Computed example of a mutant assay.
Amino acid sequence: MEHLSSVSPWNAVSVIVLLIVALSILQGARRGATGSARQLYGFVSEGAAAAAALYLAWKGMGLLSPVLRAWLIGRDIAIPNRELSMWAQMYYTFVTSLRDFSLMRSTLVFLVLYGFVKGLLAHFVLPVLDRAVASSGRSREGTGTARRASAWTSVPAGALIGGITGAGRALIFIAGVLVYTTLFPDSPVAAYASQSSLYQRGAKDVIGPLTGRMLDKLPVLAGSVEDEFNQILKRKYEVLDARIPEDIAAAAQEITARKTTDEEKAKALYQWVGTRVKYDWEKVRLYEEERVWKEQTPEDTYKTRTGVCIDYSRLYAVMARAVGLEVKVVTGLGSDGRGGLGSHAWNEVYLAESGSWVPLDSTWVSSGGNWFNPADFNDTHIKES
Rank of each mutant, 00 (worst) to 15 (best):
T145P: 02
F377A: 04
I248P: 07
T363K: 10
T182E: 01
A249T: 08
I77W: 03
A49Y: 00
Y237F: 15
R75Q: 13
D247C: 06
P9Y: 01
A170L: 04
Y114Q: 09
L113S: 06
G42W: 02
A250P: 02
T256M: 09
I77Y: 03
I248T: 05
N370Y: 05
A268Y: 06
L210H: 00
V329F: 08
K303N: 15
D280K: 06
S36H: 03
A249W: 06
L160V: 12
E353M: 03
P188W: 01
R235S: 07
A167R: 02
V327C: 15
R31M: 05
G42L: 08
W371T: 11
L215S: 09
A266W: 04
Q231H: 11
A322T: 03
P9N: 01
L183S: 13
V177C: 05
P245S: 04
D205T: 02
V125L: 13
P374I: 08
G119H: 08
T165H: 12
Y312C: 09
W87C: 01
A252I: 10
N81H: 07
A53D: 10
T260E: 12
G223L: 03
L198M: 07
G137I: 15
F124C: 00
G144M: 12
S197L: 10
I174Q: 00
Y312V: 05
L54N: 11
V128L: 13
L103H: 07
G42E: 05
L98G: 11
S14R: 00
T275L: 05
Y114G: 04
P219F: 03
I255V: 13
V44C: 14
R105M: 05
N378E: 07
W58T: 15
W58Q: 14
M86L: 15
S385F: 05
L240G: 07
R38S: 14
D100P: 14
R99M: 11
V323D: 07
I310T: 10
V323A: 04
E141P: 01
N230P: 01
L23M: 13
A57R: 13
V225G: 09
E289N: 10
Y91W: 14
L111F: 12
N230D: 08
M319A: 15
D376W: 06
R99Y: 02
A317T: 08
V323M: 04
P359V: 03
V109R: 11
V125N: 03
S150Q: 11
V21P: 01
R338T: 13
V308L: 06
V117L: 13
T256N: 10
W371L: 12
S24Q: 06
A249K: 11
A222N: 05
E238R: 10
E288R: 13
P219S: 03
L72H: 03
P185F: 08
K383V: 07
Y316H: 12
Y41M: 12
R99Q: 15
G62S: 08
I207S: 08
L360R: 03
G32S: 05
I255W: 09
I255L: 09
D186N: 13
A190T: 00
I25H: 02
E46D: 15
H344E: 08
D379T: 12
R147K: 14
G42Y: 00
T145S: 09
E226D: 14
R321M: 09
A49F: 06
W10T: 00
G324V: 06
D100T: 11
